[in-house]
């Protein structure tokens, strides 16, 4: 379980997050939703210790993220930020191999090799494995980053808009894989999603942020209501039902 209490965060006088307290359940797929600039990514990055915590406390399965050594955290959670340009000229397989680095810290063994190949298989990257990162499309590079995060084999996966650059089929496949992983192996996933319907279709738990504060949190049925979403996005929406899951309609 990730427990967040009393987290505030500001950059240069601008308050990004205000007094966030929440707990993200273990063994569930949690989606962070909200309009642009709501602070979703910042919250995820704070949990993943990519940004230093200014106030409040965040703990992951009882480990305070400020006290726990970063090496130990890397064995417990993997975070994938929004893609940044990598200067090193790497083949896709080499990038995915770095996912094993927290485990071997420079001295890989056979089991590391297996995990890498599994991750490459899982994201259909075997045919591209020897291509250089700057020679593949944005979506393929995104899949390679995801594969690296998977190869890290952690209990927790934190993903910042993982669907960026992915087409419809790959987006769906990723969400299905995340849901399956959560259901099958008891892993926990926290992901920022831009398109609310992906959360509606796959998430077990939803946290809705607006203007740096939590507006609603809970099971999809509790959060994805017409009143709540209309207020969240300042846009009137209708909630329909599709195969037993909510479907958010907001076109015209």
């Amino acid at each position: 379980m990730i427990e967040i209490s009393g987290v505030n965060y500001s950059i240069g006088g601008a308050q990004i997050l205000r007094d966030i307290s929440a707990s993200l359940p273990k063994g569930k797929l949690t989606a962070l939703i909200g309009p642009n600039g709501a602070g979703k990514s910042t919250l995820l990055r704070l949990i993943g210790r990519l940004e230093p915590l200014q106030s409040g406390r965040i703990s992951l399965d009882g480990m305070d993220i400020r006290q726990t050594p970063t090496e130990a955290l890397a064995l417990k959670m993997a975070i994938l930020g929004q893609q940044t340009h990598i200067v090193s000229r790497l083949r896709l397989r080499e990038l995915v191999r770095f996912g094993r680095w927290p485990h071997h810290r420079g001295r890989p063994c056979a089991c590391d090799h297996t995990a890498v190949e599994e991750a490459l298989d899982a994201f259909e990257l075997q045919p591209l494995a020897t291509r250089f990162l700057d020679e593949v499309s944005g979506g393929q590079a995104q899949r390679a980053h995801l594969a690296m995060t998977f190869a890290q084999c952690t209990d927790w996966l934190l993903l910042d808009e993982p669907l960026n650059n992915l087409d419809m089929a790959h987006s769906r496949a990723l969400m299905a894989r995340l849901a399956e992983m959560v259901a099958g192996t008891g892993k926990s996933v926290v992901t920022v999603v831009h398109e609310v319907n992906y959360a509606a279709a796959w998430a077990d738990h939803i946290v809705a942020l607006k203007d740096g504060a939590i507006m609603a949190q809970g099971a999809p049925d509790e959060v994805l209501t017409e009143a709540c979403l209309s207020a969240l996005y300042d846009t009137p929406v209708t909630i329909a039902n599709h195969n037993g899951r909510p479907l958010v309609l907001h076109h015209a």
Binding site: G48, R49, L50, E71, A74, A78, S88, F98, W101, T149
Partner: peptide, 21 residues
């Protein structure tokens, strides 16, 4: 430091996420 430098070459974000100090 060579192995750590390899990780550093991935950029700050990825490096931190892989547990590099």
């Amino acid at each position: 430091l060579a192995s750590r430098l390899d990780v550093l070459g991935l950029g700050r974000e990825v490096a931190v996420s892989l547990g590099l100090r």
